[in-house]
């Protein structure tokens, strides 16, 4: 009886997967026709760091949306956060002779040799969402995405507004060493020192872009620093984690500011749990990448840095935004 049941289960799993695969294969299969199709349609290869991250999942939607609008084909390869895999995938795209590559790097340094090898193919490459630093920038044509410094500055302006320029705050930072962590911290701290010298950052903890971890971080911050009025988290996921810890400890008068504009963040602003956030739209990010890539294919002139806008969201204007991730 149990044996039969298990057999049926395996069967169901198998069918689910195979049907899932074949449907996706047909979806994308049509996009993988040789690039020199009779229609002359151009192909853009996309190297994504990891589609299991909500932001990047939505980023891909932005890419697809604009690709459809511009009538170009996409080949999307996911490195699943492995640096060697991404450099092999770069080779795969060159083998496929795509017309341009959007690179969302897992690691800005480790991808450089693959970029050097790609030079001889003359395929234009743009860095999307993740910047490549100086050594990598030599081999690419453009960067599209958000400026983390601007985001940090925006958060500082929101914190100043929320606390009326005075008080103690704590910071929940992303994973150390990553570009957004460094610059969201830098932009925030520099701007805050300039516009609100009476606001002190009394402590920082790592939230690692993770909600559960940020709950713990906030609990510990509260234990060590009872006298705080504000929290700045490097993204909304961590901000919402912090809010949860604040509620559990009945400290919901403390103002929280984040970056991102995720569904959880926008919800928290709507109900008044969070003071505000800086919107970084993944869809807009993706759209911008394809726009610039198409311009490159058409040999139009472009700027090297193409930043997307970072609007501020607070309770006053939250109704105008629909969450994307």
């Amino acid at each position: 009886m149990k044996k039969m049941f298990s057999l049926v289960l395996v069967g169901v799993l198998l069918t689910m997967l195979i049907s899932g695969c074949s449907s996706s294969a047909t979806n994308q299969g049509s996009k993988n026709e040789p690039t020199e199709a009779a229609s002359g349609q151009k192909t853009i290869g996309v190297l994504i760091a990891g589609q299991n991250a909500p932001y990047l999942a939505s980023y891909v939607k932005g890419l697809q949306k604009e690709a459809e609008a511009q009538n170009v084909e996409l080949v999307i390869l996911d490195a699943e956060w492995k640096i060697d895999k991404q450099s092999f995938q770069m080779q795969n795209l060159i083998t496929k002779k795509v017309d341009a590559i959007v690179l969302n790097a897992v690691d800005a340094k480790a991808i450089v040799p693959a970029l050097v090898k790609a030079q001889s193919s003359n395929i234009p490459i743009i860095a999307g969402n993740v910047g490549l630093e100086e050594e990598g920038n030599k081999y690419i044509k453009a960067f599209t995405g958000a400026d983390s410094i601007t985001e940090g500055q925006g958060a500082a302006q929101l914190i100043k507004e929320a606390l009326h320029g005075k008080g103690n705050i704590v910071q929940i930072i992303g994973s150390p060493g990553m570009e957004p962590t460094i610059n969201r911290k830098k932009g925030f701290e520099e701007e805050l020192a300039k516009i609100a010298p009476d606001i002190q950052i009394v402590a920082s903890e790592v939230g690692g872009w993770d909600k559960a971890k940020s709950v713990t971080a906030m609990e510990n911050l509260l234990t060590a620093n009872p006298d705080i009025q504000g929290v700045y988290a490097h993204d909304d996921t961590m901000a919402v984690g912090a809010i949860q810890a604040l509620k559990e400890h009945k400290k919901d008068s403390i103002k929280v500011v984040g970056i991102g504009g995720s569904a959880a963040g926008i919800d928290a602003i709507k109900v008044g749990d969070m003071y505000g956030t800086n919107l970084q739209s993944p869809v807009q990010d993706g759209v911008e990448a394809i726009k610039v890539a198409v311009k490159l294919i058409n040999k139009e002139n472009i700027e090297f840095f193409n930043y997307i806008e970072i609007p501020k969201i607070t309770k006053e204007n939250v109704a105008n935004f629909t969450p994307e991730w």
């Binding site: 198998l14 997967l17 695969c21 996706s24 294969a25 993988n32 299991n52 999307i76 390869l77 699943e80």
Partner: peptide, 21 residues
């Protein structure tokens, strides 16, 4: 297996599942 799935453009979510299978 992973190379073939990349070349045929199978989305990574399904790749993970297929590799497990």
């Amino acid at each position: 297996l992973s190379n073939l799935l990349d070349l045929t453009g199978v989305m990574s979510y399904y790749q993970t599942g297929l590799q497990g299978l």
